[in-house]
Design a protein around this nucleic acid. Structure first.
Lengths: 222, 222
DNA sequence: TTACGGATTACGGTTTTCCATAAAATACTG
DNA sequence: CAGTATTTTATGGAAAACCGTAATCCGTAA
């Protein structure tokens, strides 16, 4: 079982629930941080002190407030932590239920478990901790387990995202082309723009551009 | 102080936190429901039994799952409850931070308090309960207090919202007109549609329709 | 009834987007 | 180097959206 745990979570309620869960496991050596930055610093300090954490439980989205932060999301935190301390076990604990993001967490950051916040999340959290503490198995909440089976990704690149963001900000296609030309972004013809949009609409099964922006907004990719 | 409380909240973690808060007030007679439908039924039954609740603490957004529901959101629940039992005190307890929705809750459903879930929500919840239990004052979490000072009422009606929703779902203007004609929604000409959209774009300062949908999505109107 | 005003609808021209095809540029291969 | 893909750009016509103006409908009041 885990000996030293760090929690990154901004909401009081979830912190409370996680603490109680850890108590049930007789884990007493844990700390929590309400900001990703704090969590990261603590993890780094623990390594320096030769008393590293062996489990990170992290939320994905953090509310912005007055404080300036370097790491603004759990995704970033997880990525950095995985890099800093490859052997730490990581549980993502979030309301996020978009397949793309969940899959990316498992593939790119090699998280050990994904627990979906919801009507049965505490139970799931317990299962996840039990499972990953003594094995290298992965845990994922059943409601979103299908995320991992998703096949085939055509990769969406930076330029795609840029286009979508400009569109959602009210920029016309022609204007975007102009912007791309002046900032020297490579494919910048009318045709290229149209082809890209067509691909995106195809990929996201969108009827038209409005629909496309709407979908990608919902998915949180813009 | 309140004698009998009902909680409508689907997440375990928040339920736990609310319960602890009520304990601090020595309120022991409370029940919670994970679905709006259940909460409504309990409130109605309590009235019939002549033992009505005197406080409702309700979340605004509820996760959808396999179960079919009549009341899908806290907004609806609150509206119906206010109608059924005008004297009940209502606390909306939500992550929602869009001014429009908060303002509408105070104005249309006359909620007594709005507590924003976040880094200090338990404290706010306590303040809200204390304040509204013995007076008719309103409470609102400071982070969103500005919502009430917003001026300029919208003349945006149901049809506007319908149009925006259809647009964001990928329906073309012509298709929407067809739908309106078959469902007998009153202004259903091409011109009317265009004029409406033009008004909306003007009002929201949107460059084009994509922008309009994007803005209204961000504001939580659709 | 008639006259007026507001709301709705109809119409026409312009712009933007959409889509298919072809030309040009670039990369890849033997 | 020639020849063949692949990618990027160009072109033109169709559809959709945009925008101003004019005609029509409809309720109200003189």
């Amino acid at each position: 079982m885990f000996k030293k745990v760090i929690i990154a979570e901004d909401f009081e309620e979830f912190n409370l629930a996680i603490k109680q869960t850890l108590n049930d496991f007789d884990i007493v050596n844990f700390q929590h941080a309400k900001y990703c930055d704090d969590a990261f610093l603590k993890i780094r300090k623990a390594i320096q002190d030769n008393e590293p954490y062996d489990l990170l439980i992290s939320d994905l989205s953090f509310k912005q407030d007055h404080r300036e932060v370097k790491i603004g999301s759990g995704d970033e935190l997880i990525e950095k932590v995985r890099e800093l301390q490859p052997n730490i076990k990581i549980i993502a604990y979030s309301i996020e239920d978009k397949n793309v993001r969940i899959k990316s967490l498992f593939e790119n950051s090699e998280i050990n478990a994904f627990v979906l916040k919801g009507r049965n999340s505490i139970e799931d959290l317990k299962k996840a901790i039990t499972l990953i503490s003594n094995s290298d198995q992965k845990f994922i909440s059943p409601e979103v387990a299908s995320a991992l089976q998703e096949k085939g990704n055509y990769e969406i690149d930076d330029v795609d995202i840029k286009i979508l963001k400009y569109l959602s900000a009210g920029t016309s296609q022609d204007e975007i082309i102009e912007i791309f030309k002046t900032s020297d972004i490579k494919p910048n013809s009318k045709s290229a723009m149209e082809k890209r949009l067509s691909k995106l609409k195809d990929f996201f099964k969108a009827n038209n551009t409005i629909h496309l922006v709407s979908i990608t907004k919902d998915m949180g990719i813009i």
